[in-house]
Write a protein that binds this DNA or RNA. Structure first.
Length: 275
DNA sequence: ACCCAGGCCTGGA
DNA sequence: TCCAGGCATGGG
C-alpha cells in the first residue's frame, strides 16, 4: 500500500542515525526488520512511499512505527520560515525525517553499543547480535528472504560475556548483559518509562551501568518517544560550538527539541561529508 | 603510525 | 565539580 506525505523520506530516515536496521536493497528501495516483522519500502517519488504490507498490518504496526499520525510539516514550516539560518537549511534538507517509534529494548541495547563507535560499526554489531540471539524468520513468496529479529531481554540476559566479546562488542559486553538483566528482573520498566516524563526516564536509565547522559537521551528520544529529549553527541557538540558559539537555546524549541536535534545532526553530517 | 567514532567509568585534583 | 586516562574495535 502507498502513503503520501511531504515529510516521509526513507533514505533520510535510514541515514539519520536513529535506526540501525534499515538496509538499502536497491536505489530507492529499503528493507526493515521491526516488531518481529520484515517490511520493504520503496520511495516512489518525493511525496509517496510504498510499503509491502496490507491495510490491516499498516494500521496495527507501521503507521505507528513511522509516527505517521504526527504532522512534521508544522515543525518544518516553523523552522524554514524562522530567523535561524542554520536550522532553516537543516530542516529544508532533512524534512523527510521522522522520529520512529522503535522497540524500547532494542533501542536500549543499540545505544549502549553506539558509544564511541561510528554508525556502520554499530550496524554491524547489531546485525551480529540478531543473527546470534534473535529469531530466524522468512518472508516473501517461497519465503526466500531470511531475516533475524532483535533478541528478547531473556536471551541477552543469559548470554555469556565471552560470547558477546566474540561479536566484537568490546568492553560493552558487560553493559549489555547487565542492562538486559535489569529489564528481565523488572528493576527497570521500559513501558512505564514511556508513560513518565523525559527527565524521570533519563535519570532512571542512567542508573544502568554503561548509560550516561548522551545514551540515556537517545533511548528516551528513540526508544520511549520523548521528543523533547536533546542528545548531545560529537556532531551536535560541533554544531553547538561551530555554528552557535555555545549559545544555542534549546528552550526555544521546548517540547520537540529532539526533532530539531535530528535535523541538526543529519545536516551537519552532510556538510562535513560523514559516512 | 595516529586519530576518530551518536561515550562512559574511575580516580584524582 | 571538573578533568585525564583507559577502554575494544574498525576505518580513514
Amino acid at each position: 500500500m502507498k502513503v503520501k506525505s511531504k515529510n516521509f523520506n526513507i533514505k533520510q530516515i535510514a541515514d539519520s542515525g536513529q535506526c540501525f536496521r534499515m538496509k538499502q536493497i536497491e536505489e530507492n528501495k529499503f528493507g526493515l526488520v521491526a516488531y518481529g516483522r520484515y517490511l520493504e519500502l520503496i520511495q516512489v517519488d518525493d511525496e509517496t512511499v510504498e510499503l509491502s504490507c496490507d491495510e490491516v498490518e499498516f494500521q496495527q504496526i507501521w503507521e505507528n512505527y513511522f509516527d505517521l499520525t504526527y504532522y512534521y510539516g508544522a515543525i518544518v514550516a516553523d523552522l524554514v520560515t524562522g530567523e535561524d539560518s542554520f536550522l532553516k537549511e537543516a530542516a529544508e534538507y532533512g524534512k523527510g525525517i521522522r522520529i520512529l517509534r522503535q522497540e524500547p529494548f532494542e533501542m536500549l541495547i543499540s545505544f549502549i553499543i553506539s558509544q564511541n563507535k561510528n554508525i556502520p560499526s554499530i550496524k554491524q554489531c547489531i546485525t551480529r547480535i540478531c543473527e546470534t540471539y534473535g529469531e530466524t524468520k522468512h518472508y516473501g513468496e517461497g519465503s526466500q528472504i531470511e531475516y533475524h529479529t532483535f533478541p528478547t531481554p531473556e536471551k541477552l540476559a543469559a548470554a555469556e560475556k565471552e560470547e558477546l566479546r566474540a561479536l566484537k562488542l568490546g568492553y560493552r559486553d558487560e553493559y549489555i548483559i547487565r542492562a538486559s538483566q535489569a529489564v528481565q528482573s523488572g528493576s527497570i520498566n521500559l513501558p512505564e518509562l514511556m508513560l513518565c516524563s523525559h527527565e524521570e526516564a533519563v535519570s532512571a536509565l542512567k542508573n544502568i551501568h554503561g548509560i550516561g547522559d548522551k545514551v540515556a537521551n537517545c533511548i528516551s528520544l528513540y526508544g520511549l518517544h520523548h521528543i523533547e529529549a536533546f542528545p548531545i553527541d560529537v556532531w551536535i557538540k560541533k554544531v553547538l560550538s561551530e555554528i552557535y558559539q555555545n549559545s544555542f537555546s534549546v528552550d526555544r524549541y521546548q517540547g520537540y527539541a529532539g526533532i530539531v536535534q535530528q535535523y541538526m545532526f543529519y545536516y551537519k553530517r552532510y556538510l562535513d561529508g560523514a559516512r
